[in-house]
């Protein structure tokens, strides 16, 4: 259990961090591969993990171009579309993982944490959906008018991802305690 959640943590960190030395030294597909491995280990106990595994594996291949260039800084409309597409994919992966975490925490009977997790899930998902919606309109608004607003939004999204990683660590801690017998 602990190992699996660890994989989810490190995998997502690799997805987030881009260190550019010509190629992305921490490639996104590798990150998704690590997450997928973690999901596989949880499949037997938690059926959601199977859906997570399937989608994450697809993301390994879909995110391939990100190894070679920073797709989020491109100006061509097709690259911009791809950039939004993989960000949505990343959100879907997190959505599945959060769903998985919900089931895990339920098993270990920590109801306070369950509440927190539920709240964080809502905030994480809603903030991302709002960010994506705003992004779709930047195509038809002057750069000077949206740059400041969107920069702040991007910062918020970054904070959300850090909170998600912290959440993963906390679930890992909870998962090392004894399980609660549920009738």
């Amino acid at each position: 259990m602990k190992k699996a959640i660890n994989l989810l943590f490190w995998g997502y960190l690799v997805v987030l961090v881009r260190i550019d030395f010509g190629l992305d030294v921490l490639p996104v597909p590798l990150g998704y591969f690590i997450i997928a491995t973690g999901c596989k280990q949880l499949e037997k106990k938690y059926p959601v993990a199977q859906k997570a595994w399937g989608f994450t594996t697809a993301m390994i291949f879909i995110s391939f171009p990100t190894i070679f260039l920073d797709v989020h800084q491109q100006t061509h409309i097709l690259w911009k579309t791809y950039s939004l597409f993989i960000m949505i994919g990343q959100l879907i992966v997190v959505y599945f993982i959060l769903s998985l975490l919900k089931d895990i925490v339920l098993d270990y009977g920590n109801s306070i944490f369950s509440q927190r997790l539920k709240l964080m899930t809502k905030i994480y998902i809603i903030s991302h959906l709002l960010y994506f919606t705003a992004s779709t309109f930047t195509l038809n608004i002057a750069l000077d008018d949206w740059l400041f607003f969107m920069t702040i939004f991007m910062f918020v999204i970054l904070i959300m991802d850090i909170i998600f990683l912290v959440l993963l660590r906390e679930v890992r801690k909870i998962a090392t305690n004894k399980k609660v017998d549920r009738c």
């Binding site: 879907i92 809502k122 779709t136």
Partner: peptide, 26 residues
Amino acid sequence: MKGKLFWASLLLISISWIVNAFYAQS
């Protein structure tokens, strides 16, 4: 409940993007 809303939102976002992109391209 949350699930359906989530997927529907993603669909709407995709549609918004496509419409905005085509308009901008024109």
